[in-house]
Amino acid sequence: MYPEGLKYAKTHEWLKVEDNEGKVGITYYAQDRLGDITFVELPQVGAELTKGKSFGTVESFKAVSEFYAPVSGKVIQVNKELRDNPELINQDPYGQGWILVVEIASPAEMEELLSPSDYEQWVKQQEEVG
């Protein structure tokens, strides 16, 4: 449910780093909590993300939620498929359901992100809190 090789934010986004670029999506836990996703609103290519700040909105039948940037940087690619098929996030959260690619501004920010096992622990804690 939480693949190796990815870094995880406590706000339930994942980050896959390649050189100075980071691909961003939401975790299995996040999409499961939301339920069937019906709509996403994403930033434009060129927009600047700030770590921890909201960069978009996701709607499911029962909830509205926000995406939070796991790192700061400029958006260099957005998954256009999600406009008509936002359910890809439910079906394949780590693959076809990716959200955007960001040019990582400050690699040091990544140190605060969690490993798969630490994230899994975090999710367990969240579920206990309810």
Partner: peptide
């Protein structure tokens, strides 16, 4: 009744 132009949901 009303219909949105996109998938966005009124609530």
């Amino acid at each position: 009744g009303f219909q949105m132009e996109t998938r966005i949901a009124p609530r």
